[in-house]
């Protein structure tokens, strides 16, 4: 049986003049339907590049991503991205931002009233229906990220791509959003590929954690299964031995075997 999403021997080399920088080297990974996979690594290891290749925003030099047997070579709503800096259009309201996506993806398939209902449904899902008429500048960072999530969910993507979605948020807001994402994943069973540099976030949310070695020429160093039952509760997990062991493994990988020397 072929996997749902396959990253097949992906190499990425940036060429500037006679300079060549190999960012990714032979990254191969398979993701099953409904699976939540995190990619973790130090900054500069090419994890965002990898996500952009899956999104189709950046072409791979060799290899590529295959989604349901189809090679990915351009961006599309079947691989909706939640960007790190929310990327909401500031001239549209919260509703307008989600509606733009709904109108584009469901044009001709749904009637106006249905598209409106679907937009509101997705805003409800991220608990942002109350702010539907606000503009992005008028809501907090966490709320913007929620709307970005609603926009992505509204496209009914085959794979949801999260590019450090909580990176720019404070710890409390981040925890709250992680819980929302877990709840939504539980409810809808999306296939999720998330980029993160937060060890706790990776262990809490993921079924599998993909650890990247340092760049240049980053590749997959280790893949860790997180055998924790869902639904997961943040507070209960804090003392769970499996959780702590997983956390320990990721920390060891990141800070012992692949320390980021330049970061200091």
């Amino acid at each position: 049986m072929q996997p749902y999403l396959k990253l097949d021997h992906i190499d990425k080399t940036y060429t500037r003049g006679s300079f060549q920088t190999e960012v990714l080297n032979d990254v191969t990974l398979t993701i099953e339907m409904g699976e939540y996979v995190s990619i973790i690594g130090h900054s500069g290891c090419g994890k965002s590049t990898l996500l952009n290749i899956v999104a189709g925003l950046v072409p791979a030099t060799h290899g590529g991503a295959i989604l349901e047997g189809q090679e990915v070579n351009e961006p599309g709503p079947d691989r909706a991205v939640v960007f790190q800096n929310h990327s909401l259009l500031p001239w549209l309201t919260v509703y307008g931002n989600v509606r733009l996506a709904v109108d584009k993806v469901f044009a001709g398939k749904q009637r106006r009233a249905e598209r409106h209902a679907w937009t509101m449904h997705n805003l409800d899902l991220v608990q942002m229906a109350h702010a539907k008429d606000k503009r992005p500048a008028e809501i907090s960072g966490g709320m913007k990220q929620r709307v970005g999530l609603a926009r992505a969910l509204a496209m009914e993507p085959k794979v949801l791509l999260l590019d450090e979605p909580f990176g720019a948020l404070d710890a409390l807001t981040r925890a709250h959003l992680q819980d929302s994402v877990m709840a939504i994943h539980q409810k809808l069973g999306n296939t999720v590929l998330m980029i993160t540099h937060d060890v706790d976030e990776a262990v809490l949310l993921s079924d599998r954690i993909v650890m990247m070695t340092n760049g240049p020429s980053a590749h997959i160093g280790e893949v860790l299964e997180v055998p924790l039952a869902r639904p997961r509760k943040r507070l209960e997990l804090a003392a769970n031995p499996t959780y702590l062991k997983c956390r320990q493994r990721v920390l060891e990988f990141l800070y012992e075997r692949h320390r980021f020397i330049e970061a200091a």
Partner: peptide, 21 residues
């Protein structure tokens, strides 16, 4: 949904407005 966790963190103003009434 993981409501209990939200409740415990309802002091934060951002979270409060997003939580159900």
């Amino acid at each position: 949904m993981n409501m209990p966790i939200m409740k415990s963190e309802a002091e934060s103003p951002v979270l409060e407005s997003a939580a159900p009434a």
